[in-house]
Simulated assay, not measured.
Amino acid sequence: MAYDEIKWRKRFNYRSDITLTLTHLTRETKEMSSVEVLIKILNEQKIIGSSNSGFIHGSNTAVCFQDAPQYGVAQNINHEKTYREELGNKVRYSHNGLVFLKSYVFKKGGRPVIYEKLEVAKEMLHEDEWWRIVNYDLSNKENIIDWTHEREWRVKGDFEFSLSQPYIILGNTSDYNEFMNKAPEEVKNTIAGITSIVTLIK
């Protein structure tokens, strides 16, 4: 018997540490709140690829996702808040975002990143594929480089999607109210759903 999609999906029913979905978290800008950024993405049905200030290598941009269940995404958000100073004080993402089925992102070119020492990975891959590299180095106890807790996936360039595909996550009541007040009715009526992770965020 072939290992088909039905059997593949069933496997996830017996695991609490893996998921069928991928999460992209938004962040605020000088002009917009993270909820407004989320609404802009939904209106345009596109996530613009980013160079992410040095985290994405090579000349290509990419869109980043986390391959983690909701409680894992929430733990990553809490970690970012708690250890922001140690992480360089950079706000990389908020507690608001979009969630897509993993199979949908895969069909649009999304793949797990390659965790490896940067110089080793660059020898392995053509420069046009360097967007897939996440630096990983445990050799120096005084300078550990490890982002594997995010189980990151990336899509090269921009990520265009149908509005019916994502459901969204919102981190608190204020964000929910902002979304409901500002999002167009077409968006609210078309997206797959809304989930609050307020009980998981510290």
Rank of each mutant, 00 (worst) to 15 (best):
M1T: 15
A2R: 02
Y3V: 11
K7F: 09
T23K: 00
L25V: 07
R27E: 12
K30E: 11
V35H: 00
K40D: 14
E44K: 06
Q45C: 13
S51N: 14
S51F: 12
F55H: 13
F55V: 09
N60M: 11
C64T: 09
P69H: 00
V73H: 03
H79F: 15
R84I: 15
E85H: 14
E85K: 10
E86V: 06
V91T: 13
Y93W: 12
S94T: 00
H95W: 12
L101M: 14
L101I: 02
K107V: 06
K108S: 04
R111P: 01
V113I: 14
Y115N: 05
E116R: 09
L118Q: 02
E119H: 07
E119Y: 06
K122N: 08
W131Y: 15
D137T: 08
S139M: 07
N143Q: 10
I145C: 11
D146E: 04
W147Q: 08
W147P: 07
E152I: 01
E152W: 06
R154S: 06
G157P: 01
D158A: 08
D158Q: 04
Q165I: 09
P166S: 04
N172V: 09
N172Y: 03
S174E: 13
Y176I: 15
N189H: 03
I191A: 01
G193P: 04
T195W: 13
S196Y: 13
S196N: 06
S196C: 03
V198Y: 08
T199W: 03
K202C: 10
